[in-house]
Amino acid sequence: MSACRIDHLAIAAPTLAAGADWVAERLGVTPQPGGEHPRMGTHNLLLNLGGRTYLEVIAIAPHLPAPGRPRWFGLDERPAGAAPALAAWVARADDIRSAARHSTETLGTVDAMSRGALEWLITIPADGRVPVDGVGPALIEWPADVHPADRMEESGLSLERLLIHHPEPARMTRLLAAIGMADERIVVQAAAPGSAPGLEALIRTPGGLRSLG
């Protein structure tokens, strides 16, 4: 089975403007325009994190029709006006169906999605929630020799670590091994007693290391 790597991080926001301000305050860089996802009723902003890794700010697009299904990354369950937050991460696979089949956790069905001229395959759970208590990956497969980060402006930022906190770290480790995760930037840690599972991204900026989580 081919190896998987971190593709992008998803910041869920009540609006794109709120998400852009939140990211700029923490990282010192404003995300650039992205586009719309008609099949999900969402839109996004993008920020290059180097090496075909990027960050997206994603929000419900009020001008688009509701998709008739739960939106991805748990967006429908976020309270109105909730502060932006690191909501999900996406793992890039050369063969998404193989990776999903080998997964020790249910990551969702493989769906075709698009944004403008870009098209890709991605796993989306039927309930729209992020799998494995909110810290499991979505899998994505881009067409050969196509990746949106190739078109993004350089930001001077890079993803140094993605910390996955879960009360059952061995469960997450098994999942990552099963899908062929070969990205040394991922660190699985036991969640502190009494705390919920969560994600934390450590991003290198010109001003030093910054945390999103």
Rank of each mutant, 00 (worst) to 15 (best):
R5S: 15
I6Q: 02
H8Q: 03
A12Y: 02
P14R: 12
L16G: 10
G19C: 03
G19F: 06
G19V: 07
W22N: 10
V23L: 11
R26Q: 13
L27P: 04
T30F: 00
T30S: 14
P31A: 12
E36A: 13
P38C: 13
P38D: 07
R39F: 06
R39D: 11
G41V: 12
T42K: 03
H43Y: 13
H43S: 14
L47P: 07
N48H: 15
N48R: 07
L49T: 12
L49F: 11
G50W: 05
Y54A: 02
V57T: 07
I58R: 07
A59T: 01
A61E: 15
P62Y: 09
L64V: 12
L64I: 13
P65C: 05
P67N: 08
R69P: 04
R69S: 10
R71F: 10
R71A: 03
F73K: 06
G74D: 13
D76E: 08
A80C: 00
P84H: 06
A88S: 15
W89Q: 04
A91W: 04
D94Q: 15
I96A: 02
I96K: 05
R97G: 14
S98E: 15
A100W: 00
H102S: 12
S103V: 04
S103I: 11
T104I: 07
T104R: 13
E105C: 10
T106M: 08
L107Y: 04
L107R: 01
G108C: 05
G108K: 02
T109Q: 14
T109N: 09
D111N: 07
A112N: 03
A112Q: 14
S114H: 06
R115N: 14
A117N: 11
A117S: 15
L118K: 00
L118M: 09
L118Y: 12
E119F: 02
E119R: 14
I122A: 09
I124H: 12
G128E: 02
G128F: 03
V130I: 15
V132Q: 11
A138V: 09
L139W: 00
E141A: 14
A144Q: 13
A144L: 11
V146K: 00
V146T: 14
P148L: 12
A149E: 15
R151M: 08
M152I: 00
E154V: 00
L159P: 02
R161L: 08
H166K: 07
H166P: 05
E168G: 01
A170D: 14
R171N: 02
M172E: 05
M172S: 05
A177D: 14
A178L: 09
M181R: 00
D183E: 12
D183C: 05
E184F: 02
R185P: 01
I186W: 13
V188H: 11
Q189S: 01
Q189M: 10
P193E: 12
G194C: 03
S195W: 11
A196G: 01
P197V: 09
P197Q: 08
L199I: 06
I203Q: 02
I203Y: 05
G207L: 10
G207M: 11
G207V: 06
L209C: 05
S211T: 14
L212E: 11
G213H: 11
